[in-house]
Amino acid sequence: MVEEKQIWKALEEVMDPEIPTISMVDLGIITQVQVNQTDNTASVTLIPTFSGCPALRVMEDMVREKVLSLGIQKVDVSTNFDTAWTTDRITEKGRKALLQHGLAPPPEHTGGLIELSVLSDVACPYCQSKNTRLTTPFGPTLCRSMHYCDNCLQAFEQFKPVG
């Protein structure tokens, strides 16, 4: 008998295809896991980080594959907008995982009040200096902005705040 908490646990091993150090659970994009014990089926609900995120379908497939590997007969993976994803949903473990990938984590606990001034107040993920500046709010993926550190003279990216 597969239980919901086993699925949550297993999904901690399903990594974001674009940032392979962070799991989908730590990214905060999984909002619901339900198991129907009678017919051994499950449903998982995802929310997109960005409406235009091209990795969404791939992530749905990865989740489906993982849940089926636990012995679930059939799993319904769907994406909706019922909960708006914000960077506040990233867990503490997730923030460390972003740093591990060389990305500055977003500011914490914005409560949805994100002023764009926070974009220029970012600690460099390499030397921790705050002597940095925003070069562009758009980066190699929708969820990243590009910055430059005037202390260690290194370009870096931030997982940009969304709320």
Partner: peptide, 20 residues
């Protein structure tokens, strides 16, 4: 380069939003 990326990113956002 930065503007190339910015307009491309905004394009991606907008097309994703239109889909929703």
């Amino acid at each position: 380069l930065e503007e190339d990326i910015s307009f491309s990113s905004m394009a991606q956002d907008k097309i994703g939003q239109s889909l929703a």
